[in-house]
Nucleic acid binder design. Sequence first.
RNA 1: GUGGGUAUAGCUCAGCUGGUUAGAGCGCCAGGUUGUGGCCCUGGAGGUCGCCGGUUCGAAUCCGGUUACUCACCCCA
Length: 424
Amino acid sequence: MTLTTRPRGTNDVGPGDIELWHKLEEKIRQVCAAYGYSELRTPMFEHTELFQRGIGEATDIVEKEMYTFVDRGERSLTLRPEGTAPAVRAYLENNLGAGALPVKLYYYGPMFRYERPQAGRYRQFTQFGLEVLGSSDPLLDVEAILLPLELYKACGLSGFQVEINSIGCPKCRPSYRQELVEYFEPHVDRLCSSCRSRLHRNPLRLLDCKVESCQEVLAGAPQIGRHLCPECSAHFAQVLAYLDALGVDYKLNHRLVRGFDYYTKTVFEVTSAELGAQNAIGAGGRYDGLVEELGGKPTPAVGFAVGVERLLLALQGQDKFQAEPAAPHVYLVHFGGESKLRAAQVAYFLRGQGLWAELDYLERSIKAQMKAANRLGSRYVAIFGEEELGRNSIVLRNMRDGQEQEINLQDLEQLAKILGECGK
RNA sequence: GUGGGUAUAGCUCAGCUGGUUAGAGCGCCAGGUUGUGGCCCUGGAGGUCGCCGGUUCGAAUCCGGUUACUCACCCCA
């Protein structure tokens, strides 16, 4: 049974679905090109410490969701659960910051997290993400939001919402943190168990708790706005000003916090109304401290990641993003023997011209071959009949209107021309 | 890790309170048209009823366990 069953939380993408993936990947490349981002491909696994340091020891991902293994050289390796830490690692290892700044990178590929699968959540999933390193310009925070929005729009997606917040920096967050703890402590008995355990470890996370009793306490919780230092405050104001100037629709959400430790200042999330509980189709933020944390010199940076399966699910819900099925230019109907031999020769020639020529490999009846051609949506059928082959020609039938003409095989170029012009 | 739902043909699903050879639609193959698709008609192939055990004269059906899928919680893209 396990031989024919894929591992939990993984997916096969084959004929019927893969076309949509290809189309989306094409859109991603187009949008990234327009914004001047180049692709960075990093390994599927990294040293475990990279994620422990990068994402943070106390995060759920590091504590219980990583696919970690020891290789034959006794190294602890981990299948990447996200793309930012590897991107920063590659940035440092390849000294990408040596040239002109900022460095604009994007990545696309599978990520791995050991979680219980559900709608829009898989153990192996695909993320498209971007990272800009080397500038603290608020306009780049905005670009990091704009680019994915551009992608959503290019796919025809509507009904998504942008939420944004600033969670400050190491200078101003401690005082907010302190005030939060002081606010919550008297209400400890009304908090849910997980909030109680997080109160001192990571009080910011209480802000997005969905438990009802916690919600009541949350209503009166202090907001970070007043605690932001002048720098963070000005930065955030600039981000919002750019968003306004560019006509981007967003919603301020002072409860928005993120699950990774490396975020500073701006954080954002895009949700889709098409999805169920896992409705975030993209999220990101600024991470000015990560490069230094991983051993580089202080380097501001901002990034964004899109869940590709979720985006596809959302698009599927709106029925707008469809790949037109590919169809053969011609289906070569043969009668076996000599006729099949001639069909194979012609198919070889046509394929060499970049034309899709299909034929029967199961010695099926003419009727069955015609049906097959029809089902594949073939524009033309070429019939390699005895009579015509005697004259070194074939019958070419247009499957749209049923018109037939005899074509001499002496002039294959002409056949290729007719097929090529049939308006793919 | 926790909770709910589901598991019958390639796909979507029927199968009522346990009762003979387990069904339908679609798909697939063939024939009706021995050299011509779509529509129609006829026939055919294809199922250890997820798996293991129990109750029973008898289990796809009831019970227990198990695995997988699925939705939700936690968290996240």
